[in-house]
Amino acid sequence: MSNILEVQNVSKNFGSFTALNSVSIAVPKGSIFGLLGPNGAGKTTLIRVINQITMPDSGHVILDGEPLNPMHIKDIGYLPEERGLYKSMKVGEQALYLAQLKGLSHKEAKKRLKYWFDRLEIGDWWNKKIQELSKGMAQKIQFVVTVLHEPKLLIFDEPFSGFDPINANLIKDEILKLRDDGATVIFSTHRMESVEELCDEITLIHKSNKILEGTLIDIKKQFKTNTFEIGIDTKQHLILEKELSEKFEVSPANFKSLGDELKLNVKLSESDNPNDLLSYLCNYGMVSHFVELIPSVNDIFIQSVKNN
């Protein structure tokens, strides 16, 4: 799979403050790429560099094989975190204006807007002013405007903020559909559950430096600790717990269940086979729970940021 976007050793300083310190990322074509990092890590600066809003001090950005240039503006759709619309302008006029700024003709923009407005069932908003709409409604229009010119690369910064769960789901499905139709999505958010759900690859930026990158699966493999969460219905609680803690690292587990079974986290070493543990447990009673603990993106995020 080739990369649609390659950021190579990009640095950016604002006075004495370093916003990006030689950051490189590669975004594969057709993927959903998670750009993560704590507040003030430099994500927005990186996104602005990709959008040619900010010029990097050094480094290069390659979009679809070419160095970034003004012609690429129409290839990128950007939904910034700090977003808004002209309050006193009508929805339709405004959407047309923004679409034309992205290089669409008036006629084409109108046609596509009609399609999208019907699709999201917001057709009757055309003549309303933005100040008459709720925040979520305005967000929907911003989403439409971002994707309308069918860019190759979509950049969403916190796309779900301000949406109720139903609309958030709607937008999520639209993002997935855009990906399936061939677009590449860069997705920046602090909502880790949506990263979990959507992203193929992630990059973590912390204090202007990239500290983690890879596919979600690889990163999880890298962070997993071979720990299993077990629940067993047994009369020999104490004996079992004692025996287990002699062989493995054991800590109390915390998951919900209906019975009053013994709940433990058991950490195996590299050479141990989980099957052996399972068959061992079977001798003591009925195993009701046996799950490998896979680190969540949330855990990975917190752990990586703390360690740096």
Binding site: N51, I53, I73, Y78, P80, R83, L98, L101, V145
Partner: peptide, 8 residues
């Protein structure tokens, strides 16, 4: 709205 415009 500025950031939306300025990306175009």
């Amino acid at each position: 709205i500025i950031e939306v415009i300025i990306s175009s």
